[in-house]
Design a binder for these strands. Sequence first.
DNA 1: CAATAACTGAACCAAATGGTTCAGTATATA
DNA 2: TATATACTGAACCATTTGGTTCAGTTATTG
Lengths: 120, 120
Amino acid sequence: MVQYIDTSLDAKFAALSDATRRGVLERLFQGEASISDLAERFHMTLTGMKKHVSVLEQAGLVASEKVGRVRTCRLGPGTLEAEMEWMAQYHALWTARFKALDRVIADLKSKEQGNEQEND
Amino acid sequence: MVQYIDTSLDAKFAALSDATRRGVLERLFQGEASISDLAERFHMTLTGMKKHVSVLEQAGLVASEKVGRVRTCRLGPGTLEAEMEWMAQYHALWTARFKALDRVIADLKSKEQGNEQEND
DNA sequence: CAATAACTGAACCAAATGGTTCAGTATATA
DNA sequence: TATATACTGAACCATTTGGTTCAGTTATTG
């Protein structure tokens, strides 16, 4: 059943709420990248990008490892399973609600057909 | 294909990144509620709850209407279709990546079986 | 060994967030 | 009509966010 308040979803949804961060994930789909790579691609300082990567790491969506002087970033161990589930639930209920509405409308229309009048 | 940076997802992901707001949506699954109802349920002032409802309305996830002195909130016209799609894509790629990893591991194991030694 | 490259931490900044209180306004009720 | 209810807007506040610069530290390269 739908839970009351589940704080564990916060971090991932928050991580995804920034376009740059989603961009970083999309970039990492294609393979590893250093902080420099990412910073350049998104027109940002190294420090700025590092912060984004940290947020993604906190959420488990990115993992990184420093070897030599470069930190290599890749997709992390965290999935979006719980988040997808939440949304699927929402979607199902939302759809159900509108199907119900459709039925009401269909109902109204069928009644209208019975006695044609009373519009405006 | 995966897009570069799509800002249109920001509002909805941000709306979902707060536990109270997800709670409000869950509450509205079950039917309409006034600002007072919601405020009480989430132990917050009317003003505070009004802000959350506004955020959800901005994202299209909630619609509200004031009749008399009470504002009634219900689920809004906005879907999470695009967001689900983004996540599904992520999930597919993530899974694919680990399937590939699994293959590599399986490969290593089969080689190990061939010449049993060299572990630690 | 000198210079350069890649990152990192601290400090700062402006704006946004998540809340509050307080002072209305509008509506309902006794 | 007086009072209570339901909301709203403005102002405030602390914290977080998304960025920056600057001053290191640690590798790499010439």
